[in-house]
Design a protein around this nucleic acid. Structure first.
Length: 491
DNA sequence: TTTTGAGTTGTTCGA
DNA sequence: GTCGAACAACTCAAA
């Protein structure tokens, strides 16, 4: 259906806070007038964004508004139930078209289809697009016709099906705003109160991130120039700047994953990078894991709250508020764990290798329900993603699809020595033990008294002793996980 | 329908 | 120090 040149369109920004490669916005830009909105959704079926991501989104929205204004438009911000607001606003401005890019959680899909139906009843066309993924969950099936449950065949099936689509350019210009008298739920960006005030804990976030399209594109180019070469190995090293740091940008959509893919391929083709074919495959596979997580979320809508493998429902998780708090604050006494948890708290980010270590520690050493960790990450990660976060926590717990075997229990000392060999990562985030020699940086409790004294450390006072012994905790976890019944079918 | 090969990311122990 | 085996058994996906 061609857009009518004189018609009014409404574009609803969700996790697509960009002009570049935004198919729904591009479609809406064909109209004669355009209203672009973002809604702080209060629908009670939706999970609210976490605190760190709110900070990120605030700034991404500010940049988006600037970009829209530069093209003769502007961003209108609303707060309320989108179920009511979208139809109300569309009717009140006389819109003929409403566009958005699709989302994949069950509650979001239900909401969007309800809105679409109501718009249709009012004679308004609602059009949705893929702006978030390389391969949408509905496209990929096993030969038996069902969803894929194992990553490698999933990713092979994606790659075999078709090449990644080329991204769209940003719209050259945008139609003017329609006449607006009064819009229900209209607020200012500051009214959203997405920024922390008392206290302002966002200092480390400001140092770490530049939300918005410009910052996202800079980050991609910086990665291709510096971190990409050697990625296959070095992506595991939290002490090196060798991961892309694109996760938060992809989560809120201030860059499109198709654009990431295309710019990466172009850099490889033009030999602008010294990355090897293996480096490239590993990086693309990381994007593939994001795709796989969305595939799982789409087909298992309760991924963030219910064990994918039901046999875990009977697992005797331990509730220990003190241990959970020590983990959250980075006071477990294991330097690599504490460094990761403090990096998270300070910057809204944690290196992926360290995420696995701290998750394994919470679940296996402390026998804490993975959902407590998932919830903490949801609130503290700028890149909090409904699919990746849930799928990854279930993977570490062993309750997920294609999950880690029960006997895989990360040793926080050997992981630290292997992936942070000189302790740079630990020293950055746990300064009170920075003066320890490398030999003891991952196991301060083994340092002789004089060495601790010279480093200015009083164990149990300036830095905690380990809250659990690794050997004992490992043995306990092996017993508990081994006691699970033989795997029950999930079909 | 049955069979077969494979499955992100680890640790420990003993030779 | 290095290396292979054991740690379980299951499910998935395709042939």
């Amino acid at each position: 259906m061609p857009a009518s040149p004189g018609a009014i369109a409404l574009h609803w920004f969700r996790n697509d806070l960009r002009l570049d490669d935004n198919p729904a916005l591009t479609r809406a830009a064909e109209a004669g007038a355009l209203l672009a909105i973002y809604i702080d959704e209060t629908d009670d079926t939706l999970r609210p964004r976490g605190g760190a991501q709110k900070w990120f989104v605030h700034h991404a929205l500010a940049r988006l508004d600037e970009s829209l204004k530069a093209k003769g438009s502007a961003l209108v911000i609303l707060r309320g139930a989108s179920r009511d607001l979208v139809p109300q606003v569309a009717k009140s401005i006389g819109a003929r078209h409403v566009t958005w890019n699709r989302r994949y959680g069950q509650a979001e899909r239900d909401l969007d289809s309800g809105i679409k139906a109501e718009l249709k009843d009012a004679g308004i066309a609602a059009e949705s697009f893929n702006g978030h993924l390389l391969y949408e969950p509905m496209e990929i099936r096993s030969q038996a016709g069902g969803p894929m449950r194992v990553f490698t065949p999933f990713w092979k099936a994606c790659r075999a099906k078709r090449p990644v689509e080329a991204p769209l350019p940003p719209p050259a210009s945008l139609p003017p705003l329609p006449a607006i008298d009064h819009l229900p739920g209209r607020v200012s960006l500051d009214d959203l109160e997405f920024l922390p005030t008392k206290p302002d804990w966002a200092g480390g976030l400001r140092e770490t991130w530049q939300p918005g399209e410009v910052g996202a594109q800079k980050r991609l180019l910086a990665f291709l120039a510096k971190g990409f070469r050697g990625y296959a190995e070095d992506r595991n090293r939290p002490d090196l700047p060798s991961t892309s740091m694109l996760s938060a940008h992809l989560a809120v959509g201030d860059i499109s994953v198709r654009r990431v893919w295309q710019v990466t391929e172009q850099a490889l083709a033009a030999r602008e990078t010294k990355a090897s074919a293996t480096d490239a495959e590993k990086f693309f596979a990381e994007l593939g894991w994001r795709e796989f997580s969305y595939h799982l979320l789409f087909h298992y809508p309760t991924l963030a709250s219910v064990n994918y493998q039901p046999k875990f429902d009977a697992f005797p998780w331990v509730t220990d508020a003190g241990a959970l708090a020590a983990w959250q604050k980075g006071l477990t006494g294991y330097p690599i764990v504490d460094a990761g948890m403090r990096q998270l708290w300070r910057t809204g980010f944690m290196h992926n290798r360290v995420r696995m270590i701290v998750a394994s520690f919470l679940i296996k050493h402390l026998l804490t329900d993975w959902r407590a960790g998932e919830a903490w990450f949801w609130d503290t990660l700028c890149d909090a993603d409904p699919a990746s976060n849930a799928a990854s926590w279930q993977w570490v717990a062993g309750s997920g699809a294609d999950a880690a075997p029960y006997f895989r229990i990360f040793n926080p000392i050997t992981q630290g020595e292997k992936f942070d060999p000189e302790g740079h990562f630990v020293r950055t985030h746990v300064p009170e033990i920075a003066k320890l020699p490398d030999k003891f940086i991952h196991c301060p409790w083994e340092a002789p008294g004089p060495i601790l004294a010279r480093a200015g450390i009083r164990l149990g006072e300036t830095y905690p002793r380990p809250i659990v012994s690794h050997d004992e905790a490992r043995g306990r976890a092996l017993e508990a996980f081994k006691a699970l019944p033989a795997a029950a079918s999930n079909a």
